[in-house]
């Protein structure tokens, strides 16, 4: 907000109060995040982590991890989508995502094959939700065709819908949609890009 001082002298007088104090503000922000968590006022906590696939955004509700996003999705856009569809009570509050961050780090270092953090499926419903719930059943290092996933999700004819469900998976990596490939053995699309899918399958020794 621009402040119009009728007298420039008043601006000069108060100028020292305008001095930004980034360290104090950072400290206040962090204690706000802790206090918000303790008083259950924080609907969505988020943080970012570095990974071989670039910076990942992790967001969790009080129930569990809600969203994992690649940087190509635009993290600001992802947070705005969460504000619009879940709640605008969103803060950068890393603590809630410590376990998820550690498990992902172990996964990328080939020290973990399955995730056990609680998940929140609020962003998915209907057949897409059936598909997502089936994904953890595909073992580490293995792949399954879109057709087989459609059968497992209860609608063998909905192969295309399986493709859409995987392409819009709000929880990539944690729900391994990268293990779903075309019947002809080619990769098929991936939210993080085909390169990322190739990387993950070779990390798991499946490619």
């Amino acid at each position: 907000m621009s402040v119009e001082h009728h007298e420039p002298e008043v601006s000069r007088l108060l100028a020292p109060l305008e001095a930004a104090d980034p360290l104090t503000l950072e400290r206040l922000h962090n204690s706000l995040a802790v206090c918000a968590e303790q008083s259950h006022a924080l609907d969505i906590a988020y943080r970012t982590i570095d990974s071989p696939l670039g910076t990942l955004l992790l967001a969790a509700s009080q129930r569990g991890v809600l969203r994992v996003a690649f940087s190509r999705e635009g993290h600001d856009a992802v947070l705005q989508h969460l504000a619009d569809h879940i709640s605008p009570r969103i803060l950068l509050a890393p603590a809630r995502l410590d376990t998820a961050a550690r498990e992902l780090d172990e996964y990328f270092n080939q020290r973990r094959k399955a995730f056990d953090v609680p998940l929140d499926f609020s962003l998915s419903k209907g057949f897409r939700l059936n598909v997502l719930e089936h994904l953890p059943a595909i073992p580490y290092g293995r792949t399954e065709s879109y057709t087989k996933v459609a059968e497992a999700a209860g609608n063998p004819r909905a192969v295309r819908a399986v493709g859409t469900a995987c392409a819009t998976n709000p929880l990539p990596l944690l729900l391994p949609c990268h293990r779903v490939v075309r019947s002809d053995g080619t990769y098929g699309g991936y939210l993080g890009g085909t390169e990322a899918k190739r990387f993950l399958l070779s990390l798991e020794g499946a490619a």
Partner: peptide, 10 residues
């Protein structure tokens, strides 16, 4: 739309 509260704080 309402921006995430994080933006409000910043």
């Amino acid at each position: 739309t309402k921006q995430p509260f994080e933006h409000v704080v910043r």
